[in-house]
Computed example of a mutant assay.
Amino acid sequence: MKGIILAAGKGTRLYPMTKPVCKPLLPVYDKPLIYYPLEVLLQANVNEVLIIIPPGEETAFETLLGDGSELGISITYEIQSVARGIADALLIGEKFIDGDNFCLMLGDNIFYHPNLKNMIESAYDKSIGATVFGYWVEDPRPFGVVEFDQNGRAISIEEKPQEPKSNYIIPGLYFYDGQAVDIAKGLKPSARGELEITDVNLEYLKRQQLQVIPFEKDLLWFDAGNADSLFQAASAIRSLQKKGQYIGCIEEQAYKNGFISKEQMRRLGERISMSEYGKYLKRRS
């Protein structure tokens, strides 16, 4: 399966941290932020990944992740020269998508649940339409908000409403079929001057091809776009890992998928054996 990570944001809400380095390369506890969405894609059995990055960051990303061969996958890169919204990723990735089903993940979103892989299986097993997720938050106004009817079916989605119709928002994990590219081509920029992913989801809703799956309430989700959420994410990850629940380990997930062998995972751990991350890989192999 194919997956796209949109990792091209300037991270202006994190200035001055992101002046010398782009947001997806910032550390979140013991690993770069980009590791967390990449691990989610691996849990969705993605083995072809396109990472959309800002101009001038090619060397940094390639130094970190290379072409993906060490993980038994393919990683390629495209540049988003101008920030034109999340749905712009579908246009940038048109050639990569090539009419196939794919997963789109935001590069600053972190998800964790022991059963996350099973939660998203129904999304990538679907051959037609789109599947997104609902996540309950106290204040949904800064997000795309989804409204359900009494049967649990999504009936409306609003982007950043002042009077939300529910507390469920749609976080940055989306599964689409090949129609998504043509839908994105037909979008007009919003008042913010961006191509909104909510408008893509609304078109699928109009076609009665949108499935919204509410996440279990004990799932952890962080939109690591500001200093507070970055700190909260790092603190939660540290706490879980101290309890033995390791998060964001792309090498281990590649091994679980059968993309690399246990010996390959051990060798990857050997290279960074001076770190706790490397020691963990060695223990697991």
Rank of each mutant, 00 (worst) to 15 (best):
E203Q: 13
E196Q: 13
P142F: 10
R238Y: 13
I213T: 14
G66D: 15
P140Q: 02
P54S: 11
P189K: 05
W136K: 12
W221H: 13
P16K: 02
D177M: 03
S156F: 08
E252R: 08
K95W: 03
L38Y: 11
N167K: 04
F215P: 00
V132M: 10
A123Y: 08
E159H: 13
M119Y: 14
L219A: 03
I34G: 11
I52L: 13
G93S: 06
W136C: 00
M105H: 05
S285Y: 06
A191L: 12
G3Y: 14
V46K: 05
V40K: 05
G93R: 04
D67I: 13
L210A: 05
G56K: 14
A236P: 04
K165D: 04
L91V: 03
A87N: 08
K19A: 07
A89Y: 09
V21I: 15
N201F: 06
L71T: 14
Y277C: 01
D108W: 02
L116R: 01
P32A: 03
I170G: 08
F111R: 02
E251R: 07
A236R: 00
R192V: 07
M265T: 06
P140M: 06
K95N: 10
E251S: 03
R192Q: 10
Y280K: 11
K31L: 10
P16H: 04
S74W: 05
P214Y: 09
G107T: 12
A254K: 05
R141N: 10
M1W: 08
V212T: 02
V132C: 15
S81P: 11
F133N: 06
Y35A: 05
P37S: 02
K31Y: 08
N257G: 01
E121V: 09
R13A: 08
F148C: 03
I169K: 09
Q208D: 15
A44L: 09
F133W: 12
Y280D: 03
G193H: 02
N101A: 03
I170T: 12
E276I: 10
A191F: 14
D218W: 08
E62W: 14
Q245K: 09
A191M: 13
P37N: 02
A7V: 12
A123R: 04
V28C: 12
D199C: 05
N101D: 02
P164I: 04
G193F: 05
T131D: 06
N226V: 05
K160H: 01
D182G: 08
E39W: 07
Q232F: 04
E94G: 00
M265V: 03
E58V: 11
K185C: 07
K2W: 03
V200S: 01
Y35G: 05
V181G: 08
S273L: 06
G172S: 14
P142V: 09
G152L: 05
E216D: 11
N118R: 06
I92S: 02
I170R: 07
C103F: 05
D182Y: 09
G107W: 07
P164R: 02
V146C: 13
G186P: 06
P189F: 05
Q43F: 10
M274V: 12
K188P: 01
N109F: 09
S239F: 10
F102N: 04
L71Q: 14
K185F: 00
P55K: 14
S235W: 08
D67N: 15
E158Q: 14
Y168I: 12
N115T: 11
R267N: 08
Q150F: 07
V145I: 02
K10C: 09
N47D: 15
A233R: 00
G129P: 12
Y124G: 00
K95R: 11
